[in-house]
Design a protein around this nucleic acid. Structure first.
Lengths: 212, 212
DNA sequence: GAATTATCGATAAAAAATTATCGATATAAA
DNA sequence: TTTATATCGATAATTTTTTATCGATAATTC
């Protein structure tokens, strides 16, 4: 059931589900057992209907007059979001942002782990950052293929991003998470998610303007 | 015209516009003068119609059989996205991610600048990170009010995020960019943009699954 | 110079996402 | 025990977003 639905869920829903999850995590810590869609919706300025609809896709069932069992809901969200499947990834470009991501502790909560970093800078290759070993880029293909790594994070400057992406694809990477402000040209069968600070900032400012 | 439309543009459009922008920036560097929606769409696996529609909201006009003048389009996108208006912000939580953002050079391309960082850790308050001064949190209200700062970035651990958000609001902050994996409860008139690694990762993996 | 073609932009159609309605149900109050 | 109420979940309506259609236009080819 989940396996059928995961293909049909909308991106906005995928962005909202983690919010419900974060909130329910807090409630669980406070020993709360149930929460209603009304309550959740209030907290995040959404409609209860939307919250119910989003939650329903995970397969969790609510109880009339009571709401959703928090333990169940957390479980179902984790399952649906695929956070229980372990996935390894590599990161290229160990500058400030790359290093920060290498040390980002929350990835493990979502089933993800960065197993190694790559960089061109010989001053850092051979060292460790946040406990992750950093290799020169020409080691990428071998390492990825050997460990069957399918996820790559790009944190290099824009002008090198395309080249790195191509190299990742040659290394067997099938999903690219791009933090460089660059429009990558990649084959249709490679998954790409663009993390765009420009877009984020603009969305924030747009909301701000609307509020005034 | 832009002022009317900015209220009506969809979030997905706002996420796509920077991609067109990045791509056209590259073309401009290569001395290309015109590009068609067909070409752009091809590069990023979209439809030409969607590209035209997105671009049209910025006010840029294309030429039949030729496409869009790149210089004009870049200009119009910058204007429409509000990247020409200068905005200052502060950042709370100068750990790995916070520090990386303090040193993120691209913000200035989008009219944004972080003018100061705040932290509880006395080992770093009083110092500078990437040239930005770091203050203890109790200085926030005074500084924000004095400099009329309206934008705040949260990079603290989840459990402190709500408290920091409230403190920001008390300090006059009107737009919050939250990097902590926490669902903030804030008044309706405060703009909030959640940067959620959990959501991003999941969207990436979902795309990946679909491709296989 | 006429025919062909690529592209735009306006409008229409289709698809997707959000919101509303309402009967069913479970708890609490009378 | 009965009544009132909060909530769910299914379905319907609405709104928003995406995609298709098509005439107009500008460059290219014949």
């Amino acid at each position: 059931m989940v396996d059928e639905n995961i293909e049909k869920v909308s991106i906005p829903s995928l962005r909202r589900l983690p919010l419900y999850y974060h909130y329910m995590k807090i409630l669980k810590k406070r020993k709360v057992d149930y929460v209603s869609s009304t309550k959740i919706a209030e907290k995040m300025n959404l409609t209860p209907i939307q919250v119910r609809k989003d939650l329903s896709i995970t397969g969790v069932k609510g109880r009339a007059r009571v709401g959703f069992n928090i333990k169940d809901a957390l479980e179902k969200i984790e399952e649906f979001m695929g956070w229980k499947d372990k996935k390894d990834g590599i990161l290229v470009g160990c500058g400030d942002l790359g290093s920060a991501l290498l040390g980002y502790n929350n990835f493990k909560n979502y089933g993800f782990e960065i197993v190694a970093g790559f960089d061109v800078d010989e001053k850092i290759t051979g060292t460790e950052i946040h406990g992750k070993r950093i290799f020169p880029i020409d080691r990428m293909e071998n390492l990825c293929k050997r460990l069957h790594i399918k996820v790559g994070i790009i944190c290099v400057p824009s002008k090198s991003a395309q080249k790195v992406a191509e190299r990742m694809i040659d290394s067997g990477i099938e999903a690219i998470w791009n933090f460089a402000p660059a429009a990558l040209e990649i084959p249709n069968d490679i998954a790409l998610h663009q993390e765009d600070m420009a877009a984020s900032l603009t969305i924030l400012f747009k909301k701000h303007r609307k509020n005034r």
